[in-house]
Write a protein that binds this DNA or RNA. Structure first.
Length: 233
DNA sequence: GCGACAG
DNA sequence: ATCTTGTCGC
């Protein structure tokens, strides 16, 4: 891809995100006791015949029992390159096709990546919410640095957190989901507040991972889907 | 030229 | 994200 083309593409991406960001809401548009199904979502990649492919997996869990209710996957060629800050444009096409295959209707979606914790407040969790039309939460495994601001390490206690504040505004939260693990980075996607997003994330933490169950299992599912696809041919 | 860089 | 085995520690 030519440098000039990429630059034009990025300008287009920024324009799209600036339109959408005007409609972000950091308030719950639901009652916490109304949450029934929570979806986790992830994508794995591989190369074949000089092309790049991706497998998007969605795992739907019952909020109270934490039982797996439904799982779907969708595999297709990936056409948009990875550009830091524009993850949604790369992953959204697969995500939307996978969502079409769902028979259940999740109350909210949890993403592997940021939401409001983004230089334009438009990480994939926030960006995707406008297409899913459901509340979303962003859960990132590594810190996405904004304006050279570092995060403050929270105490080594399960549930401890520090907020990531830039120019007086809370962008997201560094959360120690379990004792003796690296923290994760939780941020609002849309139509949810940060405390609720944190509570839901902690609700889905078990002894096996620092990541919440829906995101963790979606990640495992994408690896399995990739392996099946590769063994197939 | 060098370092940064969610997934 | 992906390429990759064993190994140290709870």
């Amino acid at each position: 891809m030519l440098v000039l083309e990429k630059d034009e593409m990025v300008q287009n991406f920024i324009a799209q995100q600036n339109d959408l960001k005007e409609h972000i809401s950091l308030q719950n548009n639901f009652l916490e006791n109304q949450i029934s199904l929570v979806a986790g979502l992830d994508i794995a990649y591989w190369h074949k015949n000089n092309k790049e492919y991706g497998a998007c997996c969605i795992q739907v869990f019952d909020f109270r029992s934490k039982n797996l209710i439904e799982q779907v996957s969708y595999i297709n060629e990936i056409t948009v390159p990875y550009i830091s800050g524009f993850l949604a444009f790369r992953e959204l096409p697969l995500i939307l096709e996978a969502v079409k295959k769902l028979k259940t209707q999740p109350s909210l979606y949890m993403f592997d990546g940021n939401g409001y914790l983004h230089k334009r407040h438009m990480g994939i969790a926030t960006h995707a919410s406008f297409y899913l039309k459901k509340p979303t939460i962003g859960v990132a495994k590594t810190y996405y640095k904004i304006e050279n601001i570092d995060f403050t390490m929270p105490e080594n206690i399960a549930g401890a957190f520090t907020d990531i504040v830039i120019d007086g505004e809370v962008f997201g939260r560094t959360l120690r989901s379990r004792k003796n693990v690296k923290p994760i980075f939780v941020s609002c996607g849309n139509w949810i507040d940060l405390d609720t997003a944190t509570n839901i994330t902690m609700h889905f933490i078990d002894k096996d991972s620092r990541l919440p169950i829906p995101v963790r299992y979606a990640d495992l599912a994408t690896h399995q889907a990739r392996k099946l696809h590769q063994d197939d041919v």
